[in-house]
């Protein structure tokens, strides 16, 4: 236990006494994490939007006026029992009228076309599928002989196009984000690896003395690993602060573009535990691997 504490102590000492080197390593680590995290946030936003639009894709079935309500309710029940169907909502003539009036609230001439007295709007069932790809299948069932006679028309909403566009955008963001993220991870690997190698180089006399007085390998290596972890730790703290305040100040300008009900900042706050865990994870892995690798290369002389 006391050895572990000493290893940690020496790690902090190395970090503090090589301030310039530590600064470079932490800066690179910060930028790496910033880039990766920004792409992750972008991805989350796009996925969030796609899911929202996906939910809005449904099939609306309009009924002829001479069909009885009971027949429509029967169909509603049958459709609701299908595994591909998530939800079936009945829209009565009154509901349809209300929606119309809401939709054209500021356009009196359109609003006035239909009224309680004259309501040509048909009754309808709005069918939401479990998955938008199952819509054609559901449509086929509806168009079967028994029901076909009842139906005036069916329609998809136009959201389908938007979803397809968003899906391809998501693919693009994922791929470019991954490439840029990997690029930055590679750079930070190289810089942190070389930083630790430099530290080891400046401390080679001390390492020699440690070996001579009988320090075990782990005791010599440990502080350098701690140092690498510290680079990661500080890098993630700084990048988190930058993201936090950056989003805080930019949120009012950016939020409308993402169609979020809440603003981007509170959205970020909701995901902070995930981001923190992710950053600490990535940073610690980079720091640990780099220092291990640097030590491994340097301490090979040991096996003589």
């Amino acid at each position: 236990m006391s050895s572990l504490l000493r290893i940690v102590k020496y790690g902090f000492q190395n970090f503090w006494r090589n301030k310039a080197l530590s600064f470079v390593a932490v800066t690179i680590m910060t930028f790496t994490l910033l880039t990766i995290t920004m792409f992750v946030i972008l991805n989350l936003l796009v996925i969030f939007n796609i899911n929202k639009v996906k939910d809005r894709i449904d099939l609306t079935v309009y009924f002829k006026d001479d069909v009885t309500d009971q027949a429509i309710f029967d169909l509603q029940k049958n459709l609701a029992n299908l595994p591909a169907v998530k939800e079936v909502t009945y829209v009565s003539k009154e509901d349809a009228l209300k929606r119309w009036q809401q939709q054209f609230n500021d356009n009196d001439s359109l609003k006035g076309i239909v009224s309680q007295a004259y309501n040509p709007l048909p009754r309808s069932l709005e069918v939401s599928p479990q998955d938008p790809s199952q819509l054609p299948q559901i449509e086929n069932i509806i168009h079967q002989d028994v029901y076909a006679l009842m139906i005036a028309d069916t329609s998809y909403t136009r959201n389908k196009d938007i979803v397809n566009r968003l899906l391809s955008l998501l693919q693009f963001i994922k791929r470019s984000g991954l490439a840029i993220g990997l690029f930055f991870i590679l750079i930070s690997f190289l810089v942190i690896f070389n930083t630790i190698r430099l530290t080891i180089f400046t401390k080679r006399d001390e390492i020699e003395v440690m070996k001579l007085v009988g320090a075990a390998k782990g005791f010599i290596r440990g502080p350098f690993v701690v140092e690498g972890v510290l680079y990661g730790l500080f890098g993630s703290i700084f990048s988190l602060l930058i993201i936090y305040f950056g989003v805080y100040f930019l949120s009012p300008y950016v939020s409308p573009y993402f169609g979020l009900e809440t603003d981007l900042f509170s959205y970020l706050v909701k995901y902070i535990p995930v981001i923190v865990a992710f950053q600490f994870g990535v940073a610690t892995i980079i720091g640990t691997i780099c220092s291990q690798f640097a030590m491994w290369r340097h301490l090979r002389i040991w096996s003589r």
Binding site: K211, L212, G214, A216, W302
Partner: peptide, 14 residues
């Protein structure tokens, strides 16, 4: 073995 060297060195002052 390389792992035993540190422990050996604690028995010899240089």
């Amino acid at each position: 073995s390389p792992d035993q060297i540190p422990f050996y060195r604690r028995h010899v002052g240089v």
